[in-house]
């Protein structure tokens, strides 16, 4: 996975954070914001242009695009969110215990992560989805697994640095248990770095999940999902109505860029090593 590093001007960070917030709010309040039922089919009104009733027009089945975009934010955000929470928890847990106990356990964990790391996340997710069926859960679980080594590698290096600092040794001399030191001191000090990793991972997970949906291995129609909207809009592009694919794609790009910008800002703030 190649890191996308943007030269974000400092003033862009609040804007990016606001965009992230807006998208999240949109997802949360979808039933109240959306002007129409996103699943209501109206074949007579297909490919309707921008109008007062349909601000972004309608798709090939006459469904309101704005409503589908708003509802689509739900799955499009929920997927990456689950991925970063799952991968973050598992990755950090493994990383901290490997760094803390060292020795053969560290070797075992590190080698296992290397093996997992060798599979490109997207390919792994596609394979798993192809084997175990499509839907929301399978790709998310697969992608979570694929993200574990990415997060664990960075967190392990940081945990190694941290555990050798004198303040940790001072706590050991005070007779505190490993569990106490890890939970109360090590983890909270790693939290900022984890935040950065999660924010970066969020962007990648979003792209990957959209790609999986696009390939038809994720959510299935008629679900409202940005990746799926891009895919379903394809025939319409040929028919001269690119709106559906375009607005979904723009939504993905804006959200990913916003999250990455926030991540970069966090990284600068906490001095974490993003790469």
């Amino acid at each position: 996975m190649k890191p996308i590093m943007l030269r974000t001007p400092p003033r862009a960070a609040p804007v990016a954070a606001a965009v992230c917030g807006l998208v999240a709010l949109m997802a949360l309040l979808a039933p109240w914001i959306a002007p129409h039922d996103p699943f209501a089919v109206d074949p007579l009104n297909a490919y309707a242009p921008f109008s007062g009733t349909h601000p972004l027009g309608t798709d090939d089945l006459g469904r309101d695009l704005l409503s589908r975009l708003v509802y689509g934010a739900r799955t499009s955000l929920a997927g990456p969110l689950v991925v970063v929470i799952a991968a973050g928890t598992l990755g950090t847990g493994l990383a901290v215990s490997a760094a803390w106990f060292g020795g053969w356990f560290d070797n075992l964990v590190s080698r296992a992560l290397d093996v997992l790391f060798a599979f490109p996340g997207l390919v792994l997710a596609i394979t798993v989805a192809a084997l175990f069926g499509t839907g929301f859960v399978t790709p998310v679980v697969a992608l979570s697994l694929a993200f574990v080594p990415v997060i664990a590698r960075v967190m392990r290096a940081a945990a190694m640095r941290e555990r050798n600092l004198p303040y940790i040794e001072a706590l050991r001399v005070q007779g505190f248990s490993s569990l106490h030191i890890c939970l109360r001191h090590l983890l909270p000090n790693l939290a900022p770095l984890l935040m950065v990793q999660a924010a970066i991972g969020f962007g990648y997970a979003m792209i990957d999940l959209a790609s999986i949906s696009f390939l038809g291995l994720g959510l299935q129609p008629p679900a409202a999902d940005w990746g799926l909207m891009i895919a379903n809009g394809q025939p319409s592009i040929l028919a001269g109505f690119p709106q559906q694919s375009l607005i979904a794609a723009v939504a993905v790009v804006i959200t990913v860029v916003a999250f990455t910008a926030v991540a970069e800002r966090l990284a600068v703030r906490f001095g974490g090593d993003v790469r």
Binding site: P166, Y167, A170, L171, N189
Partner: peptide, 14 residues
């Protein structure tokens, strides 16, 4: 008990 050399690293910064 023990006191370490570097006062900048021997306290939990949080």
């Amino acid at each position: 008990q023990m006191v370490f050399q570097d006062p900048y690293l021997s306290l939990d910064r949080r």
